[in-house]
């Protein structure tokens, strides 16, 4: 297929599936909490709706950073789609993309001049110190498979069986990372409701729709990496089923846990990262 067509198709799939999965997550959470909940396509509808809402830019914002940072989020996750489903490139690139995602959270919060955004910005820096070690799971995968290239990891798994079974602690670490990126999760301190909407507080109207567009792609891509790297060799239906299962599981956890305060959240993540890294290396050695 034409490369550009491939990229556009994958971006569109990532956006649509990611949005619907977000909607599904809210629905499941609502049902667990005995509420009817919004329709499953609500997140998708919101994204579209925000594009035609009345928008304005705060007088205090750092222009043009305030707008450019939303485009930056979209750029990095389009890059993730290219590295992931389109070319099956290097996992290290995902590490870089994730690091830049934290920076976007940081700056989207601070560029508006809102105190809520600023607090979220501080928390983004703070949580980066916990989430980047979690992303070190990539190194464990590298130690196990001897490669960072996704297509080679898939080949490795077709010969040696799924990595989910051979390095389960690494899979757990990655799951915690996915969990911390989901809305309403115990680790979602940058979007905690105590600071309104965190770094998105002052990005309303079309910029919010734009951020939600990129976040849907981000959610799809995180699930895609998890399924590809730890199970591997799935067909599209397999991916869809896997994503629905993970989303449902995340929704179950989010529905029954409160948002932790920043210190507890970071310390929990760091502890899990430590257990994951140390445990995996010990199991790899013996």
């Amino acid at each position: 297929m034409n490369l550009m067509g491939n990229i556009i198709l994958n971006v569109a799939i990532a956006f649509l599936v990611g949005s619907v999965l977000f909607g599904l997550q809210r629905k499941i959470m609502a049902r667990i909490q005995m509420r009817p909940g919004p329709p499953i396509i609500q997140h998708l509808l919101h994204t579209f709706k925000f594009f035609i809402k009345e928008s304005a830019f705060p007088k205090t914002a750092a222009m043009p950073f305030y707008i450019a940072i939303t485009a930056m989020l979209c750029v990095i996750w389009v890059a993730a789609v290219i590295v992931g489903p389109v070319t099956e490139g290097s996992l290290l690139l995902f590490f870089a993309i994730y690091a830049i995602h934290k920076i976007v959270e940081h700056n989207a919060g601070s560029s508006s001049g809102s105190p809520y955004g600023k607090l979220s910005c501080v928390r983004a820096v703070y949580s980066a110190a916990a989430e980047v070690p979690l992303f070190a799971v990539l190194i464990i995968i590298y130690l196990k498979t001897g490669t960072m290239i996704i297509s080679n990891i898939v080949t490795f798994q077709s010969q040696h069986g799924a990595l989910l079974l051979s390095i389960p602690l690494a899979a757990l670490m990655f799951f915690v990372l996915i969990l911390s990126k989901s809305p309403y999760s115990p680790f979602a301190i940058t979007k905690g409701k105590d600071i309104v909407s965190g770094y998105e507080t002052e990005h309303f109207g079309l910029l919010r729709g734009y951020l939600m567009f990129s976040e849907s792609i981000a959610w799809y891509m995180l699930l895609w990496i998890f399924l590809t790297v730890f199970i591997g060799g799935l067909n599209p239906v397999g991916y869809l089923i896997g994503m629905v299962i993970i989303t449902a599981f995340v929704a179950l956890i989010n529905a029954v846990t409160p948002i932790l305060n920043p210190n507890h959240s970071v310390m929990t993540q760091v502890t899990l990262a430590f257990i994951g890294i140390a445990g995996s290396i010990i199991t790899l050695l013996y």
Binding site: I103, N107, G113, K118
Partner: peptide, 25 residues
Amino acid sequence: FRTPGSPFLLIIHLSSLLVIVRTIE
């Protein structure tokens, strides 16, 4: 990080994270 001047604080964060990622390579 709380002081005004978000673009400049951003580069502190950006440089440290990117350098850490590069160091791992």
